[in-house]
């Protein structure tokens, strides 16, 4: 299988860029002086050309500023691993971290590349409805299973904890945590799911979805919604085999999304919902932004040899 086409950043380049971002993330201020972005500037942009669903990397939503990006997660994962290394070394158990497989093995899609379903013609042509995978994606699990099997009982207990006693994993999580009410995080993630669902009910989106259904029907595919098409039980999305039927359906799906303007309508409806929430929840979002920066700053300190 070749590498996926559009909307996917190249894995190794991303890792290198993420390393460079350590310094950038560390340079951001920590503390209350950093305000949440003004609601009016909460980004919701769709670059020219993206409206036809051909450039998912250009899709950004107002909530993006407050949620962790893929690069942020890379940073936190690397800091977590460094804290694991220190914790295990203190216990005289350095071997597991020396042999642990790479933290991130695959490539990554653009943040919203599949939020509104499969939207790229090249991806549909190559992968159908399957999630694009790389050779690294497929090789990673075997390496992890081999590593896991190599752990001694003592090493496993030190990592995972025993009898209610925290292990090095839990200690590292605690060290990188930020003082943010968990309710705020849950609210943000909940709203992130709610806005994509609620916006699907907006009149322009319903109209576009009806156009999509008619378009698909003309092409010989009878599905009420795009979700019904990708959920067709004939596709085995966990198997490496992608049938010609699946590919044909996915390509028609993408073409009909483009013809109907479904992605554009949905995206604009959702962006408006999120903008409204950003304006209404400024205090909560300020807390979330501050906590996000605190976590990233802690990770940066760890990765530059310091303590969280």
């Amino acid at each position: 299988m070749t590498r996926p086409a559009l909307g996917r950043r190249r894995g190794h380049a991303v890792r290198l860029a993420a390393a460079a971002l350590v310094l950038a993330a560390c340079s951001a201020p920590e503390g209350g002086e950093q305000a949440a972005p003004a609601p009016s500037t909460g980004s919701a942009t769709l670059a020219a050309g993206a409206a036809d669903a051909a450039a998912p990397g250009a899709l950004t939503l107002p909530f993006d500023a407050y949620r962790l990006t893929g690069d942020d997660h890379d940073l936190l994962d690397r800091a977590h691993r460094e804290l694991l290394r220190r914790c295990m070394a203190r216990l005289g158990l350095g071997r597991p971290l020396r042999t642990m497989p790479p933290a991130v093995s695959g490539a990554r899609l653009a943040e919203h590349a599949r939020r509104y379903g499969v939207i790229e013609a090249a991806v549909a042509r190559e992968h159908g409805y399957h999630y694009p995978a790389t050779a690294a994606d497929r090789a990673g699990p075997a390496r992890w299973e081999a590593w896991e099997a190599s752990l001694t009982p003592r090493e496993r207990a030190a990592l995972d904890g025993t009898g209610g006693e925290p292990g090095c994993h839990d200690r590292a999580v605690g060290d990188l945590a930020a003082a943010v009410p968990r309710d705020d995080l849950r609210w943000l993630e909940g709203q992130n799911f709610r806005t994509v669902e609620e916006s699907a009910k907006a009149a322009p989106v319903r109209r576009a979805r009806e156009l999509w259904r008619a378009c698909m029907s003309r092409a010989g595919f009878r599905y009420p919604t795009p979700q019904d098409a990708i959920s067709d039980p004939r596709w085995n999305l966990d198997a490496p085999v992608i049938t010609s039927q699946e590919r044909a359906t996915a390509q028609a799906d993408v073409a009909c999304k483009r013809e109907s303007g479904l992605v554009q309508a949905w995206y604009h409806a959702e962006a408006e919902l999120q903008r409204t929430l950003v304006r209404a929840e400024a205090a909560r979002l300020t807390r979330l932004l501050k906590a996000k920066q605190t976590r990233l700053n802690k990770a940066c300190r760890v990765l530059t040899g310091g303590t969280p």
Binding site: L76, P101, V104
Partner: peptide, 27 residues
């Protein structure tokens, strides 16, 4: 999450819809 990397849960089959991501070590 003890997987050694971030893990993402998706709303819909095929990895579509909204998603939430948990860093390594998250509970």
């Amino acid at each position: 999450n003890r997987r050694g990397c971030s893990v993402r849960l998706w709303q819909h089959v095929g990895g579509t819809g909204a998603q939430s991501t948990w860093a390594n070590g998250a509970n």
